[in-house]
């Protein structure tokens, strides 16, 4: 890819990435929303982050992996526990990194 082509590619990626980012603000604006939409919105964050987390924890290059060799899956158990008890982001991250690193080392 030449430099010009690369910049064209980056510009293309910018356009297609920016549209879904800005569209909701432009379309929804500052008007009252229907009741169903409001209720739908309360479930969007938990759903989208649930889907993202499950995808990064359970999916590897071969597909879904519930096996005991799945380090992300094993490390997520202490993270969930610490997150639930401590309600703290720093503790969750440190627990996750420590658990992941330890499991990586143990499973060589």
């Amino acid at each position: 890819m030449s430099t010009a082509e690369l910049y064209l590619c980056i510009f293309g990626m910018f356009v297609v990435s920016y549209i879904p980012r800005a569209l909701p603000f432009v379309v929804l604006g500052n008007r009252p929303m229907p009741k169903f939409f409001e209720r739908w919105l309360t479930y969007v964050p938990t759903s989208v982050f649930g889907a993202l987390i499950f995808s990064s924890v359970f999916l590897d290059s071969n597909g879904v992996n519930f096996g005991l060799d799945n380090i992300s899956m094993l490390a997520s158990v202490p993270v969930l526990i610490v997150a639930a008890i401590k309600k703290s982001l720093p503790y969750s991250i440190i627990t996750g990194l420590a658990a992941y690193g330890m499991l990586q080392y143990l499973m060589g």
């Binding site: 649930g50 990064s56 997520s76 969930l80 997150a83 703290s88 982001l89 969750s92 996750g96 990586q104």
Partner: peptide
């Protein structure tokens, strides 16, 4: 793999 997991752990915290 390890460093990506830092963000996964952050998401699990925020999600909970």
């Amino acid at each position: 793999a390890l460093v990506s997991y830092a963000l996964v752990a952050m998401f699990i915290g925020l999600w909970s």
